[in-house]
Design a protein around this nucleic acid. Structure first.
Length: 874
DNA sequence: AGTGACCTA
DNA sequence: CAAACTAGGTCACTT
């Protein structure tokens, strides 16, 4: 007989974990399904990986447990279970049943105790036990037979706690986890512990004394005065905490190993349940027919000729592309819809229709687009223009809430309660299995997307109205989409020869460095593999690892820099990495992106970032090297597309700090910018309390780092890292800064308070970002939300400003009938190509337009440069 | 598909 | 106490 293997799952803990790890999903009946889905994924993975002979899911019985008679406040202060999760518990139970797994709960006891008791019984019987939970408390149960798996991140990533792992991680034995909890407490269970003692201190005490009892027996040996005092005053509390943290391994349970036989799941029941919950991807895996989504009946007409009666004053439009790159992938067809009709126009029909062209180009007929930028660019490829765009579903949804915009019509539609359109994945498949459906299905899908836009127009518009974001949408994002489309289609001329020459030189240098590294290491290995590099540096050469990653030793640049004096191989590796990056990403990567027209056509994602910035992809032209000269040379490859033209670049100086001055209304900061002072020097004067002449370069550097930190939502740790000083010193810096700029301090506090009260923060032009984690009990999540609350209005307002400047700039170029073309935006910078005759005019209007686009209480300042390539605009 | 490393503002 | 400063994209390696 094969050896028994028992898997014990902590039902409540895993359900919570699944719920919070996944975004809210709903089935067509409006029941939330994310926790059930997550739980299912966990179950499938665990059963697959562990192949157990016996399984049990243990549940907490109710609110009151025997621990409450020890401490009435046990698990006090917990937020009540969200209703979206509560409604899912019955489904999780059904699911477990369908999987053929036993479930058990016991009055007055928690799931922990059931698991503890069973695992004791099983390990006494020498059976192998695997415990799965999100609660680290359970690690006290680990022993030679028992492994405790704790969810790490997401839902299927588990950290396995064996006695060895606990020893490595904490330096203690599993049972001492209880002592650790006794000393440090546990905020989530409201176990008090001893004040002032956290994980680090608790472990130190345990390594020295072994247990809570021994700590108190040897209390006189403890020299740290404050800690000793805390220990003495809270002695009772420490023992009580230890008791609370102890899992009962002799609970009066009525199940035993024999009851937990796992014979496999009932396929039919599982399929039935998956259908009800609409777990389509899981159904596919089971080779079960996916329930056909019930879609509202609409009549769709595929047209072989566009006729006048089809095209009305207002219609929605969706241009379907084969893939996501509308600049190069083929155009599959156009969907058009209004209140009476929905059409699919195949690409060849559209391309040859003068009637359609006239309608598309007419400013007086209004179009509601699914994604107007892609429509502009795609329609331009058919030799037509798109005018009269009055709505853009993707942009509108993004403005209402930047977090739920994937750019897919079906997904946006669903989040606004419209279910009449299938997801692209359902129609095309995904990954390697992606393929075009037959003509009829394609026509229906495209037409339905257009119809969805029509149906959603009033819904999303109303939301924009309620949020007071109509202006942001109509005056900023919508006109910008057209300009960005134009920029993408224009593209940037790129000189392949320049790239190849640099690439050649890089390759030669890399070969030499590679040889040196192999010699110093004494063997050949893959320098690009952090894993192999770690072995060479920290095992073979014997350097001291400074930081660890999840998978091994960290070999990040900041770690290596600290080791630079230890071994000469380090600097070679750093150089190899730096040059290798240039070669792979910038030389090879960019070369591949040059089209037949000799240009690179990036795409700007307008509905992606949480702050309102743009991002650039395929390729990313917003991260071309500049900091180091070797990389900067890449910029020489970006040149004007016409002979005798020049590149012209203009950037905002200190835009984020100016925005901070404006929105915080800090008098000193405003004054500094009004005087046109060097802001870092001015900051140094205030923070160090010296006069301008006495600010040395170190002070200025420190002040600059503080200014950056302030913009990012500062922490003492972050600043200490960037300045290589202690956390304490960094903290003092920040305090001094905030004391001398009280308006900034006030702004920081107000932003967080605002986010807590309203649930979101806003920019100057009323862009929103929701921050649900701002009230989280998880320190990490909450801190992150707080920094975001401080940073987003600043970064987002700067994004608003340059977007508005782009619109003004485009209008100005048009008005003055200039040939100059706007090519790129890099967050605080605009790059143009221009005929040399227009240079003098640009020097005047570019800074003027950018500086005057919005009136703040501080002036905006723009610097500009020009040259024969992007490299020369410095 | 996820991770670590490194490029930008 | 614990964890650790904003927003992105791409590459190579690994699973």
């Amino acid at each position: 007989m094969t050896k028994k293997k028992i898997v014990l799952l902590d039902g409540n803990s895993l359900a919570y974990r699944a719920f919070f790890a996944l975004p809210l999903l709903t089935n067509d009946k409006g029941i939330h399904t994310n926790a059930v889905y997550g739980f299912t994924m966990m179950l499938e993975t665990i059963l697959d990986n562990e192949k157990p002979t016996h399984v049990l899911v243990a549940w907490d019985a109710g609110k009151t447990t025997f621990r409450h008679s020890t401490f009435t406040e046990y698990k006090g202060g917990r937020q009540k279970t969200p209703p979206e999760l509560s409604e899912q518990f019955p489904y999780i139970r059904k699911l477990i049943e369908a999987f053929g797994i036993e479930q058990y709960e016991l009055d007055l006891y928690e799931a922990d105790d059931i698991i503890g008791t069973l695992s004791r019984e099983c390990s006494e019987a020498k059976a192998e036990v695997v415990i799965i939970s999100g609660d680290k408390d359970l690690t006290q149960l680990a022993n030679e037979q028992t492994t405790v798996c704790i969810t790490r991140k997401g839902i299927t990533d588990l950290e396995k706690y064996t006695p060895q792992h606990i020893e490595e991680k904490y330096g203690i034995e599993p049972l001492q986890i209880i002592d650790m909890k006794g000393l440090m407490g546990d905020a989530s269970d409201n176990i008090p512990g001893v004040p002032g003692i956290g994980e680090k201190t608790a472990l130190k005490l345990l390594k020295e004394y072994g247990s809570v009892e021994n700590v108190y027996q040897s209390i006189d040996q403890i020299t740290a005065k404050k800690m000793k005092e805390n220990l003495v005053t809270n002695k009772e509390q420490a023992f009580m905490s230890k008791e609370l943290a102890t899992i009962e391994v002799h609970a009066p349970i009525e199940v035993s190993l024999a009851d937990l036989d796992f014979a496999g799941r009932n396929e039919e029941e599982v399929i039935q349940l998956y259908k009800e919950l609409q777990f389509n991807s899981l159904l596919e895996k089971l080779d079960a027919p996916v329930e056909v989504q019930h879609l509202e009946e609409i009549e769709i007409q595929t047209v072989d000729e566009v006729t006048a009666d089809m095209l009305t004053d207002t219609m929605s439009i969706h241009v379907e592309i084969d893939g996501d790159n509308y600049l190069s992938a083929s155009i599959l067809g156009i969907g058009l819809s209004n209140e009476t009709n929905t059409y699919f126009v195949p690409t060849n029909v559209a391309a040859s229709s003068a009637m359609l062209k006239e309608w598309l180009e007419d400013h007086a007929t209004l179009k509601y687009a699914s994604d107007s930028k892609s429509a502009y660019a795609a329609i331009a490829r058919l030799g037509m223009e798109l005018n009269g765009t009055d709505f853009d579903l993707m942009l509108a949804a993004y403005i209402v809430n930047p977090s739920f915009s994937t750019g897919e019509v079906a997904e946006i539609a669903r989040s606004f309660g419209y279910h009449g359109v299938k997801s692209d994945e359902a129609v095309f498949g995904k990954g390697a299995k992606r393929s075009l459906p037959d003509a009829e299905q394609l026509a229906e899908h495209v037409a339905r997307k257009a119809h969805a836009v029509w149906e959603l127009y009033p819904v999303v518009s109303k939301q924009l109205e309620e949020n007071e974001q109509q202006e942001l949408f109509h005056e900023l994002e919508l006109p910008l989409a057209k300009i960005l489309g134009k920029m993408e289609v224009t593209g940037v001329k790129t000189d392949l020869d320049v790239l190849q020459t640099i690439g050649q030189q890089l390759s030669e240098r890399l070969a030499l460095i590679e040889k040196d590294i192999y010699e110093m290491a004494g063997e050949k290995f893959n320098i690009n593999s952090p894993k192999q590099l770690g072995v060479i540096l920290f095992e073979k050469i014997g350097l001291t690892p400074i930081k660890k990653t999840k998978t091994g030793y960290s070999t990040a640049a900041d770690v290596l820099e600290k080791l630079e004096n230890e071994h000469e191989i380090i600097q070679h590796i750093l150089l190899y990495r730096q040059l290798g990056k240039l070669n792979s990403t910038y030389i090879d990567g960019l070369s591949k992106e040059i089209h037949e027209d000799g240009k690179i056509h990036t795409r700007f994602q307008q509905a992606l970032t949480q702050t309102g910035r743009l991002s650039s992809i395929n390729p990313n032209l917003q991260n071309i090297p500049i900091r180091l000269e070797e990389g900067r040379k890449i910029r020489a490859a970006f040149i004007p597309s016409e002979p005798e033209w020049i590149m012209f670049a203009a950037d905002y100086s200190q835009i984020e700090l100016r925005v901070l001055a404006h929105i915080s209304q800090d008098e000193k900061l405003i004054e500094a910018f009004k005087q046109g002072a060097d802001i870092h020097t001015k900051t140094a004067m205030d923070v160090f309390g010296v006069s301008e002449e006495d600010v040395d370069s170190n002070m200025r550097r420190a002040a600059k780092a503080v200014n950056f930190g302030i913009v990012y939502g500062i922490s003492d740790y972050g600043l200490s890292q960037s300045l290589n000083i202690t956390r304490k010193e960094a903290g003092e810096f920040i305090d001094t800064y905030l004391a001398s700029f009280p308006g900034v301090k006030q702004y920081m506090d107000d932003s967080i308070a605002d986010a807590k009260q309203k649930g979101y923060v806003t920019t100057l032009l009323n862009r929103r970002r929701y921050l649900p984690d701002i009230t989280s009990s998880n320190f990490n999540l909450r801190s992150f939300a707080e920094r975001t609350a401080m940073n987003t209005p600043i970064q987002g307002t700067a994004a608003d400003i340059i977007k508005k400047a782009m619109i003004d700039m485009d209008a100005r170029l048009e008005k003055e009938q200039l040939q100059t073309r706007m090519l790129l935006q890099v967050h605080d910078e605009l790059i143009f190509e221009a005929p040399v005759e227009e240079l003098e005019r640009l020097k005047e209007i570019v800074p003027e337009v950018m500086e005057q686009t919005l009136q703040l209480d501080v002036p905006l300042k723009v610097d500009w440069n020009h040259g024969k390539s992007w490299y020369e605009t410095k």
